[in-house]
Write a protein that binds this DNA or RNA. Structure first.
Length: 489
RNA sequence: CGGGGCGUAGCGCAGCUUGGCAGCGCGCCUGCUUUGGGAGCAGGAGGUCCCGGGUUCAAAUCCCGGCGCCCCGACCA
């Protein structure tokens, strides 16, 4: 293939960070806003988020959740009630101190997360065991005044969903936390074509105030891991702080058991880094705002004839697929080929004089460049097959890459060497001691990404089997089960 | 919070060392010819050289101060 146009995008090998930013901007997913750490979601990038919402929201509904919306502002006194939990994120909170030209009597935090507000409301809404479980979710924005930001991965303001649930027992809360982790894993695999590793966070890595934090981790193509979603069993910490009590069947007042869980627009960063290549973005068909783009090749003489056929084709396909006809006159077909590849559209449909005469079109896959002819009659069905094949192929590729990039190591020398050469995921024994965990982090910058869940087949399954029974990689002490280490975003 | 880079047309940059007409490429506008992997020609529009102060006959350029953005690292409940 002609790579001349790639001048627009830095290669991954040359500078991965620059490649990432090039893809995000040149594919027109985002642009930098004139506020530090803030970005604009351009229509194409926001379209991906809408597709992610479209994949997750029905799953939330199917598991009994409803959407609601809570205020952006949180009174300072609310946050102070959970002082212990709050202390850690004070430096990241933005405050509103004036309104209507006057100083406010009480400062308002711009939510960095909504536990405080939602728990306050729950304390009013929940009286009886009959009110449980309470299963709400909200799609919203949050603000965290981060010192270092990167498009999609960590920005001052970002979009996410946060589910907040209340239950009558610890068992129910645990079940819910795991159920939603499963929902994330399923959606990320099925729709985003990400190969994820569900697992438990260590005490050091868990959400403060949670009993347990679960995570889905994914490996990016530069060998660093990304926490793609989290689900917390919050126990009764917030219930005590906010007095969320219910009268049980036995006549006793009891605190509820809670969960919270979330994924954010960070997932778009994961899509870029898992599927993208040196030509730009590669989108899985199920979350691609555009699944196919029709590029007419229309010489002057047959111009109207070909454009009419292309419009008809678009109208036929648009009932079943997200398609766009690129009939811009100011660009050549070659220019369009390159641009739509850079923007990651899964399939390109070419329609030129030769195709028109033969009653067919040309289909070209973004992920592997394969081209094929499809008859007009068979096209609608064939396009669906090709899109499925792209979706499937991207998932398999992500899985294979993650599996190939996973190493079992037995000592710290091998640990260090692996990180320096390939990065990737490291499966090793760990004694469970926070001291060993901290020293490994200090020496290598790698953290325990998770303790993988039992009974879930993932790209690290065979490595976990191989590492079974290995002693702690740091102290040589007895280890429980092997864990996954990596450097991470 | 530490390290590095940058700020000149919409974007990318040159010019700064050694002060002297504000330039180049892409993009944009108009017209014509083109269209199977980033078309060509002709004409045209577009500037607070980040901001403030200083030096000077003269500052994008030198000096002082400030602001902003990006990247890397640390931090990230």
């Amino acid at each position: 293939m002609d790579k001349e146009y790639v001048r627009e995008i830095t290669s991954r090998a040359e500078d991965y960070s620059q490649w990432y930013v090039d893809v995000a901007t040149k594919a027109q997913l985002m642009d930098y806003a004139p506020i530090k750490g803030c970005m604009v979601f351009r229509p194409y990038g926001y379209g991906i988020w809408e597709r992610i919402q479209g994949a997750l929201d029905p799953r939330f509904k199917a598991t009994g959740h409803q959407n609601a919306y809570f205020p952006l502002f949180i009174p300072e006194s609310f946050l102070q009630r959970e002082a212990e939990h709050f202390e850690g994120f004070v430096p990241e909170v933005a405050w509103v101190t004036r309104g209507g030209g006057e100083d406010l009597a009480e400062r308002l935090a711009i939510r960095p997360t909504s536990e405080a507000m939602i728990c306050h409301m729950y304390s009013r809404w929940i009286q009886s065991w009959r009110d449980l479980p309470m299963l709400l979710n909200q799609w919203c924005n949050v603000v965290r005044w981060e010192k270092a930001t990167r498009p999609f991965l960590r920005t001052t303001e970002f979009l996410w969903q946060e589910g907040h649930t209340c239950h009558a027992s610890e068992e129910e809360a645990e079940e819910e936390a795991l159920r939603m982790l499963g929902v994330y894993a399923d959606c990320l695999q099925e729709d985003l074509a990400l190969a994820v590793i569900p697992g438990l966070k260590t005490e050091a890595e868990k959400f403060a105030g949670a009993l347990r934090t679960y995570t889905v981790e994914a490996l990016m193509s530069d060998g660093k891991a990304l926490q793609a979603g989290t689900s917390h069993n919050l126990g009764q910490f917030f219930a005590r702080v906010f007095d969320i009590l219910y009268l049980d069947r036995d006549g006793q007042q009891k605190h509820v058991w809670q969960t919270s869980w979330g994924v954010s627009t960070r997932l778009i960063g994961a899509l870029i880094m898992v599927h993208g290549d040196d030509r730009g973005l590669v989108l899985p068909p199920r979350v691609a705002p555009l699944q196919a783009v029709i590029v007419p090749i229309a010489p002057q003489r047959q111009r109207e004839e070909i454009l009419a056929a292309a419009r008809e084709l678009r109208d036929t396909l648009s009932g079943s697929y997200r398609v766009q006809l690129d009939d811009r006159e100011e660009h050549s077909p070659g220019w369009k080929f390159n641009e739509w590849e850079m923007r990651g559209v899964p399939v390109r449909i070419e329609l030129g004089p030769r195709d028109l005469a033969a009653g067919r079109v040309i289909l070209v896959r973004r992920d592997n460049g394969e081209r094929e002819e499809a008859s007009n009659r068979g096209l609608p069905g064939r396009l669906g097959e090709v899109l499925d094949a792209v979706q499937d192929s991207l998932y398999r590729r992500a899985w294979a890459f993650t599996e190939k990039s996973t190493r079992v190591v037995r000592d710290m020398a091998a640990f260090q060497a692996t990180l320096e050469q390939d990065r990737g995921l490291i499966v090793a024994g760990w004694c469970g001691d926070a001291g060993c965990e901290a020293r490994i982090k200090g020496d290598t910058a790698a953290t325990i990404r998770c303790l993988p869940l039992d009974g879930v087949v993932t790209p690290v399954s065979s490595a976990l089997g191989e590492a079974k029974g290995l002693p702690c990689v740091h102290c040589g002490g007895r280890s429980g089960r092997p864990v996954v280490f990596a450097r991470s975003y």
